[in-house]
Structures are given as C-alpha cells and as structure tokens.
Design a binder for these strands. Sequence first.
DNA 1: ACACAATACTTCGTATGCGTAATATTCGTA
DNA 2: TACGAATATTACGCATACGAAGTATTGTGT
Lengths: 149, 149
Amino acid sequence: MTFIAPTDCPYYLLSRATLVITSALRAGMNEAGVGHVKPSYLGVLWSLWEEEGLKVVELGRRAGLEPSTMTGLLDRMERDGFVTRKADTQDRRVQQVRLTKKGRTAQKSVVDVVDKTLAKALAGISEKELEKLKELLRRVLANAHSENR
Amino acid sequence: MTFIAPTDCPYYLLSRATLVITSALRAGMNEAGVGHVKPSYLGVLWSLWEEEGLKVVELGRRAGLEPSTMTGLLDRMERDGFVTRKADTQDRRVQQVRLTKKGRTAQKSVVDVVDKTLAKALAGISEKELEKLKELLRRVLANAHSENR
DNA sequence: ACACAATACTTCGTATGCGTAATATTCGTA
DNA sequence: TACGAATATTACGCATACGAAGTATTGTGT
C-alpha cells in the first residue's frame, strides 16, 4: 500500500492528531490558570499522584520515555515547582522524585482540563469507536514492542 | 470520562504511536542507506514530488506545519542536499523550493521504506480497521479545526 | 576480595515543533 | 500615489524527544 494524500497516510494523521491535542492541552492549561503545567508533565504527575517517591527510570517506564528524556523533563518540573528530587539513602544511584504541595494541589484543575480537552478533541466519537481507536493504537505499540528484539 | 492508566488514555496512546513510528521510520531510512532523510522531510518531499517550485507557506499548508517550523526544516533539507531555495522573480517575498537531483532520485527508496515501515507498524490491522482508524483521526483533526475560530 | 557487568542517572548534540516578533514586500484603497 | 493591511519569510526562545557517551554505584562470579 502506498499513501498519496496526507489525509490518507496514517502516519500523517497520527502526528497531526497528537500535535493538535498537545496544543489544545497547552491552551486549556493556560485558560484554567495552570499554564505552568506542560503537556509532557502529565505522565509524571499521573504516576506520582498514584504513588509518590518513584525513581527516574520508573517514571520513564510508566510514561514511555527514555531516562535521558526524563532528566530534562524533571529539570523543568522542578524549576516550575511541581516536584523535587531526593537522593535515595539505600541505593545512592537513585533519585526519588516526589511531589511538592503545588504538585499535589494541581491535581484537581489539571485532571479537569485534560478531561474537557479530550472531550472536545474526541467530540462526535462514540464510546464504542473510542474503544476501537484505543485498541488499534495498542496494537501499533505492541507491534513496535515485539519488533525490538 | 477520566483516564487512569496510560494505556487507557487516548492522548498517551496517540503520542506513543506517533513516536514509535517515527523511530521506526528513522531506523528504516538508516538501514536502507537513505539515513539523511529524516521523518520530518517526508511531508515536504511528498509535496515536491507532486509539484515542484512550491513556496514555503504552501509546503507548510500541505504538511500541516507552521511557516516558522518550515524555515528550520528547509534549512536542514538544504544542508542535506535535498532541496534548494530560489527567490521568486514575480513576488520577491517568496522563496521557491525545488528538488535537487538527490531529492528527486531518493523518491523510490524513500517510498519503499515508508511503505514497509507502516506495513510493519500496522501489522494485524485489517483494511477495514485501518479505514476506521483514519476516519476517526480525521474527525479529531476536524474538531480541532472548527475549534479554532 | 576483585574484576567486570549491570543499573541509574546525567550530559551533550541533534531533530522537531510551536508562538511571537521582526523584516521585507505586495496589495488595496482613499 | 501614499499608506495601512495583508502576506511571506526569517529569527529567536522554548518545549519535547531520542541516542550515544560519561560517571557513579551496585551486583556477581570466581
């Protein structure tokens, strides 16, 4: 199969969809007065709201990001006052990442923005269709995963 | 609707799917000996293989990218020898972008890599499912589009 | 106990994208 | 025709991601 028009190419559609939702999230955060929360922070915040004191590698694993990516991401999050790093006393290679008060109290607004933004982005898509979409995307990820070994 | 696990969040799935395919494309290009062709070049090359001498804004429109993004992209493509810019004599604001010989001859290998990479990434997804996926993604783009005005 | 492998994290260079502002040119209208 | 609006491009700062390579620490096999 060869894809001619951009709107016929799944890669184009995926990239664009990701970018427009990222933009919408950024805008939504600004409007809601939590503009310091960048879209990339979400994966980390989500993990830490569940379980605090995770290490860098573990956060990366959960968000699907490389450790080297996490470093810069956590630098920005620390700069913006959402998390702190704390050396682990057991294993001194490890940095424990924990939420600040600001990181904790942001949860409500942030979850709200994400929900509303996704609802808008996915408007007109039924529950069933959404499930199908997610299932297909999971299959793409599974393909990539099995490819790498 | 609130999304708990990453694999339950459409935004996470979309981002990850985009990134893994981008990675796969990069790797595929390298293996095929056209490693200078970066994934971002594809949108521009596609447009120029169709019609040469397009201006920067038009290339951006077709690829879904901002003009300011195009500048850096075209800089890299020029550096890597795929395109040249040429001032338009009619309208001196305009830069005509045209393919070099290298840019033209790359078409066959590049299209080949893209086809094979997408086939692998989308393995196990039927024609019908792929159509559905594309339709849903187009709807997301349409939503974003109508949102912005 | 010691050499070597594995793990955790960071640093650095590069790619990719956006938005804002600056510059140059052209267009439309009074 | 002069002038403000629109258009085309670039410049700059920032966010986000990867991979390769470096550093520190821990684990393992002999």
